[in-house]
Each structure stands twice: as C-alpha cells, then as structure tokens.
Amino acid sequence: MTGLKLISLADRIELTALGTTAVLVVTEPRALDRAEDVLRSELTAVDEACSRFRADSEISRLHDRAGSTVVVSPLLAEALSVAMRAAALTDGLVDPTVGDAVLALGYDRDFAAVAADHPEPAAPARPAPGWWRVAWNPETREVLLPRGVTLDLGATAKAMVVDRIALRAAERAGCGVLVSVGGDVRAAGPAPEEGWRLGVGDDHSQAEPDLTVTITGGGLATSGTTRRTWRRAGRTVHHIVDPHTGDVPSPVWRTVTAAAATCVDANIATTASIVMGDAAPGWLAERRLPARLVTAAGEITNTAGWPAEQES
C-alpha cells in the first residue's frame, strides 16, 4: 500500500484486488483489452493459490495437510520457490514461516476488515519456525510443511504476480506495459519514448509524490510501516514482522523504495531493509541496489545511484 504511483499519461485499467489497488497501463490503446485479460486472470489465480484469508485457497488446503507430503500446483510452486529464494538471499530476514506471528498481531483477514484497535494484547512474540524447516522440492513440486508452521507468502507473491502480469501482458498485447499492485511496479516491453514516470512517496495514493523517477524497464517496490497499521492494546503494529523475534522490527525506516531487475527482487530488498534497520544502507550498497530509505523523522538516505531529491 506504500510507495509508487504512476503519473505517466497512457491508457489504463484500474481495479481492486488482493486487498489493494491494481493498475495496468499500455502504450497502445488497442491492446488494453488483451492486457486486461491477463491482469484479471493472473490476479484471480494468485488469490486462489496463495491467499491465507480464503479457506478454499490452495495454501489453506496445504496448511490443513501439514505433516504430509503434498504436490502443489505450478503457480503455488512458483510462489513457494520465490519465497524460499527470498529467505535464502536475506539469511532469513524475509521468511515465509512468519504466518503465526502475523496472525498473533491481528492481521488475520483482508486488511480492510482488520480492526483498527484491538483492546487485547497479542500473545507473547515468538521467533518464526524458520524457512529451512519446510521440505521443498521444486522439481517435483512436493512440499512437506511441518505441523505448527503457517506460511505467509503475501509480500513475495504480490511481487511475483506483478512480474507475471507485466511479462505476459506485454507478450500478449505486443506493446509496452506497466503494472502496479499496491505500489509495487514492473515494466515490460517497449517503454514510452519519455519512459514511465513514477511518483515516489510514503503512500502510492497520495496526490503529491515526494519526487519523480523515470524507468524504462525492470521493477520497483516499496515497503513501509505507515499504511497497513493498527493498534494492539494501545501499541501500534504493522504487517512486517522480524522473523528472529516474531514481532514488528525496530522503527528505523518509515519506508524503503528500491529498484531491481524484477519486482520480486526489489520487494525482497525493501522488506529485508525494513527488518534489518540501521544495516540496510550498507547491505543495499553492497548489492548495488538503488534505494531510497526514509526514517520515521523523514530523514532520507539514498544508495547505489538512487536520484537525488527533486521537484515532482
């Protein structure tokens, strides 16, 4: 729900999906219907496969069969591989086994239905079980989920579907496409001559962005602690969990926006940065990932060539 807002003028479709706003823009107006078909089918498919808020989703059925080996669909297999790769790349800072911790904080339904203020305190925080406990064979699509482990693929699955939509819509429509779901962005196909212009800020729906950037391809993502928040026994909490503690991380960064070759890689970087706190700028710089990090007080740190602040 944070970060990036498309401000280029082009033909677009906008709809509500996955608890947020999805936007698809094409460079050729005649191709919009074909691209829209991809958008709608991919969003529906990932919701049916990965939503932990649906009792009939594939991942809910996987939880019901914890302790047994299950062969999952190609789409859920892709989502699991993306989540496990994120955990490996970040040494467990982005860990899909945080499901119970997120539930304990009160994020147990679509965010629009989450109570703004829970009077009862959350259960004592406990570290996530650990992604390495999930026995996953991507070649056979077999997964053995230990009993007592709840998966949350939310962030990485959303970024994954952004990449899938952009690539497939560009191929089907035969033109340039830009996709944004909840402010996470991927561009594919030929970009407009002036590039895709994006407003960057704490909230992708804000009227006036903090600055404007232009991309011609690849992904951008923002993770933040300002939008998906609620109160628990008088304490403000949010949807990003530190797997090492099972609680929200120390409030170092308000938002982190990063660019990468894919939306998935950008999302991995921003989520990990929120969790790791003070070490994030060095971690991002070592990986040559352009990023913009904003503290709770509004102080800005840029890494790896992220453009300096400018008038939008």
Rank of each mutant, 00 (worst) to 15 (best):
S250M: 09
R186V: 03
E14P: 06
K5Q: 13
L93Q: 14
L153P: 05
M160D: 01
R232E: 07
A155N: 03
V161H: 10
L24Q: 00
V143W: 02
D47H: 11
V71M: 08
W136H: 01
A260H: 14
V143R: 01
V161N: 12
D203Y: 10
S273V: 04
W136N: 02
G19P: 10
A123E: 12
R197F: 02
V114Q: 09
A269Y: 08
V294W: 07
A17Y: 14
D56P: 07
G106S: 10
D56C: 10
A66V: 10
H239T: 12
A35K: 05
L211N: 00
V161K: 09
A49P: 05
V70K: 03
V177A: 09
W253D: 08
G99K: 06
V256N: 00
E142M: 01
P119D: 04
A87T: 05
E28K: 13
D95W: 04
G148L: 03
E14K: 15
L62T: 02
L4N: 14
L39K: 12
T20M: 10
A260N: 13
H244C: 11
P29N: 05
P290E: 11
E14C: 12
H204N: 03
G183E: 11
L32Y: 09
A66G: 13
A77C: 14
E194G: 13
R133D: 06
V71N: 04
T69G: 08
E193Y: 01
Q310L: 13
A17E: 11
C175E: 07
V213I: 15
L93Y: 02
V264C: 04
G219N: 06
D91C: 09
M1Y: 06
R168N: 13
V241Q: 03
A79M: 04
I274C: 08
V102E: 05
E120A: 15
G174V: 14
R235M: 11
L18H: 10
G148D: 03
E48T: 09
H244V: 08
L220S: 07
I13Q: 11
D210G: 12
W132Q: 12
V72D: 03
T214H: 01
G189T: 10
N267I: 00
P129H: 02
L284C: 01
G99S: 04
I13P: 00
A269L: 06
R147D: 08
T257Y: 07
S60I: 06
A122K: 04
E28H: 13
G234M: 02
R197S: 14
A169C: 09
P129S: 03
V200A: 14
T303A: 09
I268T: 15
G282C: 03
G182F: 05
T222N: 05
A221Y: 04
L80R: 00
C50I: 00
S273T: 06
D33Y: 01
G3K: 06
D184L: 12
L15C: 15
D56Y: 07
